[in-house]
Simulated scan of single mutants.
Amino acid sequence: MPTVHDPERKRALVMRLKRVEGQLRGIQKLIETDTDCEKVAQQLSAARKALDKTFFAMVGCVIAQGDVPADDVADMLSRFS
């Protein structure tokens, strides 16, 4: 059963987060160089969506483990999304 400790899943999650980290650094540079606000907002939206995808991948891991009842997964989704 796949868990976050599964090397392949762990690697995929870490790689996603590293990409988001790069996006955030890019956004910081955009702000520092007085880039148009709409372009900054667009990049912020992309970073937020990337984090959301990572979050849902983690929720998938929780579901795949099977040791959290469905109602608890639903509560987690409503609390954190």
Rank of each mutant, 00 (worst) to 15 (best):
A47S: 12
P2S: 13
P7C: 15
M58E: 13
A50D: 02
L77W: 06
A41G: 11
R9T: 02
D71L: 15
A64V: 15
M58N: 10
F56H: 03
Q28R: 13
S81F: 12
V62E: 10
L30S: 12
Q23E: 07
F56G: 04
R25A: 02
L24F: 00
L77M: 12
V59Y: 04
R16W: 01
Q23T: 00
A64T: 15
E38P: 13
I63C: 03
F55R: 13
E32C: 11
Q23Y: 00
Q28I: 06
V40L: 07
R19V: 04
T35H: 12
V40E: 00
G22W: 00
R79Q: 05
Q43D: 11
M76D: 09
R11I: 09
P69R: 09
V40K: 05
T33K: 08
E32F: 14
K10Q: 09
A41V: 14
D72L: 07
R48E: 12
L13F: 05
R11T: 14
M1W: 12
M76Y: 14
V14S: 13
V4T: 08
A12T: 12
I63Y: 07
V4P: 02
E21R: 00
M15R: 15
L17F: 00
Q42A: 08
P7D: 03
P69A: 07
H5K: 08
S78Y: 12
T33E: 03
L13A: 12
A12P: 04
